[in-house]
Design a protein around this nucleic acid. Structure first.
Length: 764
DNA sequence: TTTGCACGGGTTTTT
DNA sequence: CCCGTGCAAA
């Protein structure tokens, strides 16, 4: 038990042994953070703290599970410690105490999709157009408010006389009311309401403060304001708060995470102890140096630099692909090459900025017969068929859940259409009863035939509800499937039919598993479990497959060899962040890059493509600025097999005197310079006459101004606002290029070339 | 009420 | 390109 202490380095040991009071641990990537956290918990128990008084909070279920296992492995009674995510901890608290807020304990949990549906109904009821008030955007706005603990009232007064914001405030009000009527909570409510519970009820707050005398929080840099408040409240009495994090790995700013939370910890708790773990045990010297250099480009950060005793390792391999297909091919070939020489498939991860990028890589992997696991994208519990079945369970578990009931009332088809549903909803609203309750009523305007169908459905529903009282979720599910013929209805001859059926079967399997594993086998608890899982929670290290995931999902994981694909401006950093031109957004992208680099133990491969399909249009791409922030000496250009490209390498080495290579630390890598100009003249200017309109002849030829401009005079381009047009002039406008484009139906417009929305159109 | 088709608009990251 | 939406026809 005490033996493990000797394996720690002095800083780690200090963090584990430090006594009561606030403690901030800055833990760089790969610095043994989880180990310190688990040992600290073990240490507390060893010193006589009752495990009952300890709570450790993580962001993912996977992290929680891992920590729970590790604590249990080294400490007796370790399994009594609450180790859970913010969301599941709060759900547990709310199930017990939410009645104090006027909700019922059997609440449903709505995921992003559900909330958006509900929001859509709200927007319609406010008589607003969902073109001007796109549900997704409104959802973001409302979510941002909730993350900052701002309710509709406060939001409305902040909106002042702003018409649009006023409308959004109304939507927000209605949305909150509807959630409450449905006895449902969205993801943000789970946190926000727990905070509310604690602020408004002193006795409840005291109870939890007394219970959780030791609070540990992982990934503290990713907490948003609501989570910050929650932690402050929980630890408010004993102040035995230990937070672990790394400001350089804060990548959830867009979701409301506030990097300031960790940066001002010592201001919040003036007697806090700060310990920095900066020895990296994971990566090679080369990878770490590159990561350090990239992240040092950020202004707003606590200055620090990771170091390691590990070997120098091999240079970072950079591949310059023709397009995304070629890039996928490179990944595949390099994996194959390495696996022929002893590497294993599970050594590899392919990371990318956006889920859409996975496809090109997948295609090549499939072609080559390399097994892979894909994380993210459409998650299991977000699949249409899975959500349908879960909606049945939700409707049974929580009769107030109108949204769930509306979802399934005509799935599979029962001949109950939109008009009927609206009639029921209106009727229910008038009478102030739930949608489900209204089913059994005599509703004016509904034909006899439809009424029979409704009655039939209603009988089923009450039968199931009865069954649910005694039978476990698995049996209930089977009954529902038998009664509704749902599986049969999936078999519609589409290519996805079998997958869908498999998914439902998979859900049955999960239900069976749940039945044997969970202590509380109630339907509510089942829905709880499935509602709060993320894809990454299912990651298993042993599986012999290549992992594909976004950079975001990769946080907290490590691999022997990591590919980061799509290292291009407008892809990574994302178009959004580049166009926003706010340093804050670019800095977050840079942190993401840092996270990506530091996932790799031994080898890092970076690739970028000259052109890429975007919205069905080919686009030219420039190499990512992050590539240029890594000095040449750390990089090595490779060919499509992932082998060093001798020609380019020798050129880079021969042409550039060593003094310049040293200097290149600050400038772009010499061989990257060539990459600005696409090698493939796929978009040679081809002035094509437009129909029914004469175009100014491009009399003058492009001058040198436009050397690195991706457009040339005569190019046919497409602008989302004005449609097709032809470039008739290019001029410099500061550092940018200004295009003069002749749009046949609009006339001439000047636009900046950097607005990526202008795209070349192939002359087909 | 359902189905099929044409159209337009969007598109990061996720507990 | 892929999706959801709106509309017309059965």
């Amino acid at each position: 038990m005490t033996d493990y202490i000797s394996q720690l380095n002095p800083r780690q040991r200090e963090a584990v042994l430090y006594g009561d009071g606030p403690l901030l641990i800055f833990a760089g990537a790969g610095s043994g953070k989880t180990r310190v956290l688990t040992y600290r918990v073990a240490r507390l128990i060893q010193e006589g703290v009752d495990p009952y008084h300890i709570i450790a909070i993580t962001f993912t279920n996977k992290a929680a599970r891992e920590m729970r296992e590790r604590i249990s492995a080294i400490t007796p009674f370790g399994d009594q410690v609450w180790v859970s995510t913010f969301h599941s901890a709060c759900t547990r608290i709310l199930r017990r105490d939410i009645t104090a807020l006027g909700y019922k304990s059997g609440f449903s949990i709505y995921d992003a999709q559900d909330s958006e549906r509900l929001l859509k109904l709200c927007i319609r009821e406010e008589n607003l157009d969902d073109k001007n008030y796109p549900p997704a955007g409104i959802a973001n706005t409302i979510s941002a408010q909730k993350n900052r603990l701002i309710g509709p009232e406060e939001f409305e007064s902040a909106a002042g006389s702003d018409f649009r914001l006023g409308n959004i405030a109304n939507i927000y009000t209605r949305y909150r009311q509807k959630l409450k009527d449905n006895n449902a909570l969205d993801f943000d409510d789970i946190i926000m309401l727990t905070v509310k519970l604690f602020t408004e009820n002193e006795d409840i707050r005291n109870r939890y403060q007394q219970r959780f005398r030791y609070v540990l929080v992982d990934e503290y840099q990713d907490t948003n304001h609501a989570q910050y408040m929650l932690v402050s409240l929980l630890a408010g009495h004993f102040k035995n708060l230990c937070v672990v994090g790394d400001d350089d790995q804060s990548i959830y700013g867009w979701r409301g995470a506030d990097i300031e939370n960790i940066l001002r910890f010592t201001a919040d708790y003036p007697n806090a102890k700060t310990i920095t773990l900066d020895q990296n045990y994971r990566s090679t010297q080369t990878i770490l140096d590159a990561a350090n250099l990239v992240i040092s480009g950020n202004q707003h950060r606590a200055p620090k630099s990771l170091w390691t005793d590990n070997d120098q390792g091999v240079p970072i391999r950079v591949y310059y692909a023709r397009d995304e297909r070629d890039e996928g091919l490179f990944v595949t070939q390099a994996i194959k090459y390495a696996c022929d020489r002893g590497a294993k498939y599970n050594d590899f991860a392919v990371l990318y900025r956006g889920n859409a990028q996975s496809r090109a890589v997948e295609e090549q992997l499939i072609l080559a017969g390399i097994p892979y696991r894909l994380f993210g994208g459409v998650r299991f519990y977000e699949r249409m068929e899975v959500k349908d079945i879960l909606a049945y369970l939700k409707a049974i578990d929580n009769p107030a859940d109108d949204l769930a009931c509306r979802r399934i009332i005509n799935v599979p088809r029962r001949g109950i259409g939109d008009t009927t549903i609206t009639r029921i909803a209106n009727f229910a609203a008038e009478r102030g009863i739930s949608f489900t309750a209204a089913l059994a009523e005599d509703i004016p305007g509904i034909t006899k035939k439809t009424r029979e169908k409704l009655a039939e459905f209603s009988v089923f529903l009450s039968d199931w509800t009865k069954l649910a009282e005694t039978a476990p979720p698995f049996d209930l599910l089977r009954q529902i499937l038998a009664d509704t013929q749902y599986l049969e209805s999936l078999n519609d001859g589409t290519p996805e039919a079998q997958t869908r059926i498999d998914n439902v079967q998979e859900l049955l399997t999960k239900a069976k598993e749940f039945e044997t594993q969970a202590q509380d086998t109630s339907l509510t608890n089942f829905l709880n479990e499935v509602g709060l899982v993320a894809d990454i929670d299912n990651y298993q290290e042993g599986a012999q497959a290549v992992s594909l995931m976004t950079l975001h999902s990769a946080k907290g994981l490590e691999f022997n060899r990591v590919f980061i694909v799509g290292m291009e401006e407008y892809t990574f950093p994302s178009a959004r962040s580049v166009l926003s031109e706010t340093p804050k957004e670019i800095e977050e992208e840079r942190r993401l890059c840092y996270v990506g680099f530091t996932r790799a133990r031994q080898r890092l491969y970076l690739s970028h493509a000259t052109m890429r399909m975007r919205n069905g249009q080919r686009m030219l791409c420039a190499p990512s600025r992050f590539l240029k922030e890594v000095p040449t000496e750390y990089m090595e250009p490779v060919n499509a097999h992932g082998r060093p490209k001798s020609v380019v390498r020798s050129r880079a080495r021969d042409n550039v005197p060593s003094s310049v290579i040293k200097k290149a630390r600050t400038g772009p890598a010499p061989f990257l310079r060539d990459m600005h100009t696409p090698i493939m003249p796929a978009y040679k200017a081809k002035p094509t006459p437009l129909i029914g309109k004469s175009i100014l002849e491009p009399t003058s030829v492009a001058t040198s101004v436009a050397d690195d401009c991706p457009f040339a005079i005569g190019d046919m381009v497409r602008d989302p606002r004005f449609g097709r047009g032809v470039v008739i002039a290019i001029s410099a406008n500061g550092a940018d290029h200004e295009l003069t484009i002749d749009f046949p139906n609009i006339g001439r417009k000047k636009r900046l070339a950097k607005l990526f929305k202008i795209m070349k159109v192939g002359a087909d």
